[in-house]
Amino acid sequence: MLTTLEVVTIVVVGVMVGVEFAVAFVINPILNALPEDSGQLGRAHGARMLGAVMPVWYIGSLALVAAWAIAGWHHDGVGLVVTAGALLILSVIMSLLLLVPINNRSKTWTPENRPADWKQQSNRWDRFHYIRVAVIVAAFALLAAALA
């Protein structure tokens, strides 16, 4: 049973990391290169779509890691799992305090109603997101190492 939990956790967290990595290093650079208002409209749509899914994914990942830590408390690697859980908690806190407020504003923007500083706000979101990606990549690496 523990092995199944470990594999499911690694897959769920790994796919989440992959999506967030793709947003940071593939999707947003593509959207930023689009002409006129297309990129901003694409970012607003992404903010709505991923803004609805990612909270469940982050909390679900954290719950799986917590279950792994509890179920494997007396097994090797539990310290790595607990540390990964702490990093995922940090990523949720970062999300709530830094990224979600910008995301909640940007998902409603259109070319007609966006603020004058929309590009600066988008760039700020990107910078915070890069840090969050580094945190969740580290969490994922620790989970993978816990299996070794």
Rank of each mutant, 00 (worst) to 15 (best):
V8C: 12
Q120V: 15
L87E: 09
Q121E: 10
A144E: 00
L31N: 03
Q120N: 13
A67I: 12
H45R: 07
G72R: 00
T110S: 13
G42L: 13
S38M: 08
H45P: 01
A146V: 06
L97S: 03
A141W: 09
V7L: 14
N123I: 04
A24V: 02
S122Q: 14
G79Q: 05
D117I: 15
L5S: 12
V137E: 02
V137K: 01
N104V: 08
M16I: 08
L88Q: 00
L142C: 04
A141P: 04
R43C: 10
V133P: 00
V26C: 10
I10A: 09
M94T: 06
K107R: 14
V133R: 01
A145T: 05
F21W: 08
L96T: 14
G79R: 07
T4A: 15
Y130M: 08
A144S: 02
W57A: 15
A141H: 04
V26P: 02
N113S: 13
I89M: 13
N104Q: 07
E112N: 07
V53P: 00
L41E: 09
I70K: 06
L5G: 11
E36G: 11
A47T: 05
V15D: 12
L50I: 06
M94A: 04
A69T: 07
K107Q: 15
L31E: 04
T9H: 00
V7A: 15
Y130A: 08
R48Q: 13
P115M: 01
L90C: 10
G18I: 10
T4H: 15
F25P: 00
N123W: 03
S61T: 08
S95C: 05
I30W: 09
G85V: 09
R132E: 02
V8M: 11
F140M: 03
V65F: 05
L34W: 05
M54R: 09
P111Q: 03
F128R: 04
L143V: 05
H45D: 06
L80E: 08
A71H: 06
A24I: 01
